[in-house]
Simulated scan of single mutants.
Amino acid sequence: MQAVTDTLSQITDTASRAAQQLATAPPPELRFGDLLLKGGWVMLPLGILAILALVIFFERYFTIRKAAKNESQLMQQVRGSVLSGNLDSAIAICRNSNTPLGRMLQKGLLRIGRPIKDIEGAIENIGKLEVAKLEKNIGILGIVAGIAPMFGFLGTIAGVITIFYNISLTDNISMGAISGGLYQKMITSAAGLLVGIMAYVFYHVLNMMVDKVILKLETDAIEFIDLLEEPSK
C-alpha cells in the first residue's frame, strides 16, 4: 500500500513540475516565413506585385542611369566637327553614341539648312520621344503603390468576416478565439502597406532621375542651338 502511495505521489509531483514548466515556457517565436504563410491567399497577389515593382525599378534604374551619363565628350566632338564644316562626321558621331542626346543632336544636324525654329522643333520632338522611353512602365509603380494596400486591407476584412462567421457557428466569443485569428489576418494589411511604400518610393526615385535627365538634355539642346547660330553672328 505504501508503494502505491509513493508511486502516486511521484506521478503527482512529475505532473506538477511538467505543468510548471509549460506555464513558464517562453511563447513560440513568430518567424517571418510562418507569418507570410498565415496571411492566406492575398499574399500571392501581394508577392506578385512586389516582384513586379522590383523588376520594373531595377530595369528602369539602370536604363535611366545609362541615359544620364556625362555626354560632355560627345558635345565636344560634335562642336569640333560642326565648326570645321564636317557635318557627316558629326552625324556619324551622334549615330554611334546610341544615346538620347546623340539621337537628338543627329536629328538637329539632319535639319541644318532649315530655319532655326524648325531645327528646335525637330530636336524637341525627339526629346519628347526619348523621355517617353525613359518613363516607360514607371506609371505601373504608381498603380502598385495604390492597389497593394487595398489588397492587404481586403485580406484583413475577409479574414475578420471569416472569424465572426465561425464564432456565429460555434458560439465561442472568447478573446483567444478572436485575437488568435485576427493577428494572422492583420499580416495582409502589413504586407500590403510594405509593398505599397516600397513601390511609392521606387516611383518617386525614378521620376527624380528622369527629371534630372530632362534638365540635362534641355541644357545640351540649348548649347547645340547656340552652336548652330554662331556662324551667323
Rank of each mutant, 00 (worst) to 15 (best):
M1V: 08
Q2H: 12
Q2L: 12
A3S: 03
V4H: 04
Q10S: 15
T12A: 12
S16R: 10
Q20H: 02
Q21D: 13
L22E: 04
L22P: 04
T24M: 14
P26Y: 12
E29I: 13
D34W: 03
L36C: 02
L36H: 01
L36K: 00
L37K: 09
L46Y: 00
A50E: 00
I51W: 11
A53K: 09
I56R: 03
E59R: 13
F62W: 08
K66L: 09
A67M: 11
A68Y: 02
A68N: 13
K69L: 05
E71T: 08
E71H: 14
L74C: 14
L74S: 05
L74I: 15
L74A: 12
Q76E: 14
S81H: 11
L83D: 09
S84M: 01
L87Q: 15
D88E: 15
S89L: 09
S89Q: 15
A90K: 03
I91A: 08
A92I: 07
C94A: 11
S97K: 04
P100T: 10
P100N: 05
R103G: 12
M104L: 11
M104Y: 00
L105P: 06
Q106R: 05
K107A: 14
L109T: 10
I112V: 14
G113P: 13
G113Y: 10
G113Q: 10
K117D: 11
K117W: 01
K117Y: 03
A132S: 08
K133I: 06
K133G: 09
E135P: 08
E135K: 01
K136S: 02
N137S: 10
I138V: 15
I138A: 12
G139K: 02
G139C: 00
G139P: 00
I140S: 02
I140D: 01
L141G: 05
G142M: 11
G142N: 10
G142H: 03
F151E: 03
F151I: 07
L154S: 03
A158V: 07
V160A: 04
I161E: 09
Y165C: 00
N166I: 00
I167T: 08
N172W: 09
A177G: 13
A177R: 05
I178A: 14
G180K: 02
G180W: 10
G181D: 10
Y183M: 07
Q184T: 01
I187V: 13
I187D: 05
T188Q: 05
T188N: 10
A191L: 12
G192D: 15
I197Y: 01
M198L: 10
A199W: 01
F202C: 12
F202A: 12
H204S: 08
L206Q: 07
N207P: 02
N207V: 01
M208N: 13
V210Y: 09
V210P: 04
D211E: 08
I214R: 06
L215A: 14
L215F: 13
K216A: 13
E218I: 01
A221S: 12
I222Q: 01
I225C: 08
I225L: 13
L228V: 07
E229A: 05
